[in-house]
Design a protein around this nucleic acid. Structure first.
Lengths: 219, 219, 219, 219
DNA sequence: CATGAATGAGAGTTCATTCAT
DNA sequence: AATGAATGAACTCTCATTCAT
């Protein structure tokens, strides 16, 4: 039972490694098998098709992230603190999968073309999960007067877009800057833009400093 | 001569249409030929391989954008006005290629895996073009005291990431919001975050209104 | 011991069912195992290969028929009565295996191509068994003056061919007529053709009526 | 145009040869290609799948037979003469395809199992063609008082069954007797059984001689 | 005896590319 | 320059068979 799961995971790990290095289409099922130390046929004992294996990888990553984030948020009430947790979780997630980063681009590209709609659905479900969370947090910050009165969904959408954009930037630029600092930087810019006058007064100094520091140079 | 160029363009247009609808790998060279109204073999008179055709498409789009933007900026001195031109050019570019949007994801994914490094190099050259432009503009705005003193490259990097991120958001969400308004919204948030106290005072009202409006609902 | 035989029979029955429905090549060994309620590997405890299982099925059916017919003929002296018994046994055999009918076509086809010559040999042995029987019966009928003087082997060959032909007709036409009546009809036609003048006079009325009735309409 | 048809025929001939020798399933597409002197891929320029090639073979044979028989019957009025033409055409057809004989068994077996219903439909259409013809001929013979009053469809069905049965016999026995003589023998037996008293008187002598001669020994 | 996970040879099929016309 | 028939390497996936447990 548990051994079956372990071997499944082994295959997923092997697949991640090869997919990341060669891309979905250039990856041969036989390579994945070889990497996992099993025969080609064995892959098909665990996944019906190559595409299913690809999907299983996407699903396992997103599910794991959703679970971990949910857990970490349990018991935390303060929305600002929650926002930090979300950011950290995202960064941690991306960093853990740093070597697999290019796969995400392929998940996205694949989602837009495959007849298999599960990819797009799964990604949208994940995004919805984050958007819901973001709306809750942002809504509370607006309600408490920390943020200016804004159109909450728009802000949350924008934030989501920015997150992916930074990730894209990071991947395409050859991962030549620390992802975490970029996310902090983003938070500072957005913060300065969205904070109410009162909140701004309090945080201004720290945030402006961060803007001056940037995220490209070594700290 | 010019007829040769015209047919080349015909093939590029056909390729764009099919690549967008089916994706690079699912597209057959024969389909492109059929769509362009020529025989399969003719494609190879104009492009050595399928990948070269794909690259030519990327290159033609980016080159066109670079040319157009350079032209439009010629003779405009005011950096704020220039920033508007850049934003408008980007939106126009994306909108013109709205139907081809998914191809960009594939360009990016392809750039990260193909043995053919031209893809990555070409994309980086394009980004560098935009980053240089952004640094010049932002630098001037900082110099003039419109923007706070910030680490200019970081801000420009961030803006670039945000642009792509919004585009990604737009594509993955099924293009269900107006791209232009999202870019304006982005500008407002960043503006409020980056403007110096003096500049902020002047523009605050208009920008805050935009934050309240958002970009998701019909105007 | 006997349990071993019982499970072997269980597997043969399962195989017959699946082979009949899907055909030899489209049948998976795992399906047979599943149908028999055992594990895939167990099949190989009883039959060395899939083809051997197929052969065992053929053999079991033909052997059973040979045994049954031999038993039923024991103690019956009258050749006309014996002919009836043979015909009835054949019909009973075919009807019992009505659901498996298409398998016979595959046995025949298989016999003509398999490297494994046992199929062809077994089928020929079976045919020889019937031909010998037929020659004995027909010979006696000729000797007694019931039949015209004919080349006995040719008649018996023809009868055998007709039997298989009717069966083939029955299978390919979707089994849309009663097999038994077709065999009776055949007997009448052949009878009228082969009977001596004396015998014909006696049976003519009954046989001609049967020709008028045919075997396609409901009686 | 015509060259395309010629190559198609080349492939059909090659396929017939290999299918006949090895059977449908044991035949590799590459073998057919090799035999036809083309590359494997070329086969797929002419036939979408292996099964389609198999079907095309069946169709080409049956269609050819239908055409030839129709032509030969044109202008012949006498039903007895027509019956002879049909018999001769069938024998000629079988003899021309003697080397491919085992394929017919596979066509039949395939028709009963393939999801592709075209096989069964095509075979049934062919049989219907022959049955219609047979009914017309037999009907006329009955009307003219040559045959006894009989249930015409039953007789024709039986004759069709007998034809296939003799063919089966011939194939399974290793084609060790002359097919034509067997068909003549069959005709004699059936004739003696079906002829009216008047007609019988006339033909009796010749037919009985044929029964004595049989078809197994050399003439 | 029974199991069923693992195997891996081998199948049909695809399609970018070539090249004689 | 344009064609499209021909190519054949390379792919994914199947499934009869094995064998450690």
């Amino acid at each position: 039972m548990t051994e079956k799961k372990a071997k499944r995971q082994l295959l997923l790990d092997a697949a991640a490694e090869i997919f990341a290095r060669k891309g979905y289409h250039a990856t041969r099922v036989s390579e994945i098998a070889e990497r996992a130390g099993v025969a080609k046929g064995t892959v098909y004992e665990y996944f019906r098709t190559k595409e299913e294996l690809f999907y299983a990888l996407l699903d396992s990553w997103l599910t794991q992230f959703e679970h971990e984030l949910s857990e970490q948020l349990t018991g935390v009430a303060d929305p600002l603190q929650q926002a930090d947790i979300v950011r950290e979780a995202a960064v941690m997630f991306y960093c853990r999968h740093a070597a697999h980063a290019p796969i995400f681009l392929e998940f996205w590209a694949h989602a837009l073309r495959s007849i298999d709609s599960r990819f797009l659905e799964r990604i949208r479900r994940f995004r919805q999960f984050l958007l819901d969370l973001g709306c809750r947090l942002t809504g509370e910050l607006v309600a408490r007067g920390v943020f200016l009165p804004v159109d909450i969904p728009s802000v949350v959408y924008l934030e989501a877009g920015i997150s992916d954009g930074i990730f894209l930037l990071w991947v395409l630029s050859g991962r030549n800057f620390p992802l975490e600092r970029a996310y902090v930087f983003r938070q500072s810019v957005l913060g300065l833009g969205l904070l109410s006058d009162a909140a701004r007064k309090q945080l201004q100094g720290k945030l402006r400093q961060k803007l001056q520091d940037g995220f490209l140079s070594e700290p």
